[in-house]
Amino acid sequence: MISRIAAIASAVFLDAIRRKVVWVVLLFSAVLAVAIPALPSYGAGVAQAVYREVALALVYAALVAVTLALAANRVPGEIERRTIYNVLARGVPRWEYLVGTWVGIVMTVGIVGLLFAVVAIGVGFVTYGAWMFTLLQGVFAIWLEAGVLAAFCMAVASVAGAVVVSVASVAFLFVTHARAGLFAPDTLGWKLYPSLDTFNIITPVAHGSGVSAGYLGLAVLVFAAWSGILLLISSAVFARRDL
């Protein structure tokens, strides 16, 4: 089971890492990162904090774009081109196919996030003479959220095409970040609302000293719960689908 999932994940990774869109997004984001210090709104004393905030915002946009580019059409495209037939006809259970594909996408997004973090930390050091390693915390949290988004794409893609997956994914991000505007903190609605705000640590990373290891552990648990539920739903739905 593990070897089949690993085989699918590595094939998805090898295919994804050669896609131009991944490198174009990374290059574009890196160029913007280099340009951040030139922003006119810089004030004395907050330059580094603004740099970190804008850098993390860029990472977020880049990883969401890469995740959607890789995940939205992965399953629908494989069904349309029939590459999925060869995989499933070899006795690969459908849930293994979905999980393997998801792992491959998450790996690719992770590499892109890591490369961007290296660029951002490097630019920060050259510009301000400070190693901003707390950026790694922010990139890690964003990567976890991208993983949840990829799992959501898998779930929708098990019944719909690429366009529906893309639209639904954007709506998903919007809804899961709308809690603060809908409920007051610590109300029942606040507690029950399906939110991805756990992964939003841009403020403590940009303006403070980052978050604790315990908080990152909690973020990993939230990631595992979200991804697990979404992959479970997608597997259950996909198992019944005629291909």
Binding site: L14, R18, R82, T83, N86, A89, R90, G91
Partner: peptide, 19 residues
């Protein structure tokens, strides 16, 4: 699945990940 692992399959107009 267990029995499918003992067979080889060529679909009509096969296609593989292009990259």
């Amino acid at each position: 699945p267990a029995m499918s692992r003992r067979l080889g399959f060529l679909p009509e107009q096969p296609y593989f990940p292009p990259l």
